[in-house]
Amino acid sequence: MTELLRVEGLTAGYEDGTVVIEGISLSLGEGSTLALLGRNGVGKTTLLASIMGLTKIPDGRVTLQGRDITRRETHTRAFDGIGYVPQEREIFPSLTVEENLAVARARKGAWTLEAVYELFPRLAERRRNYGNQLSGGEQQMLAVGRALISNPVLLLLDEPFEGLAPVIVDQLAAAFDRIRNETGIATILVEHHAEIALSLAEQAIVLDRGQIVWAGDSATLLHDRAMLASLIGIDDAVAHEA
């Protein structure tokens, strides 16, 4: 499998000098999915933000398709092919669904307005509604659609199922499954629901205190409840079984 993303010895934090992740190294192949797991506050979102260029990086390197993007500006990385769906969704409230999709600086590719509507028919029904008139699930679909329409090669999903009803979680999981199977988009998925994340990904990484403490096949972690519980916490494991 051709390597798409390489992160080497990445140390990153914020402008106030706080270092959140330290010495992170990982590699992601084209079209593959990586689950990024860990307790709250261990640096999962910071790692995604660092790949997107939103943090201060004192040390380490990020390359996309062999090109060093460590010092590139955020909007340039997006145009290089990284789509980011942040935890907060951040839909533009004063724009309609269709306008929200249109504002992305789109690269040509398979993901058109029609393709997004085909993936999320609910968005097509609500295409003339404003962002602030959508439910949480619809907003998440829109956030994902907006990232897809820029035709990324790498999709960063930060807690995409958070706060959503089970039926919406199922719809989104099915959509991610389709994206993975039908397109060549690689994905890094940060998700509190470990079982869903592991079922969608081939590989998994567990972070603790800003460092990688486990890396391997998702299936291994998915079937070893004891290891999963020890890595991401007893409460989380119980929650997944519930």
Binding site: L54, E73, T74, F92, L95, N100, A104, R105, R146
Partner: peptide, 24 residues
Amino acid sequence: SPFGLTVRGIRDNPLRMRLLGVPV
């Protein structure tokens, strides 16, 4: 225009527009 949509998006959330590849 599409330009108008992007500046309205920037007004709402400049960081988000940056994440969408727009040179804010």
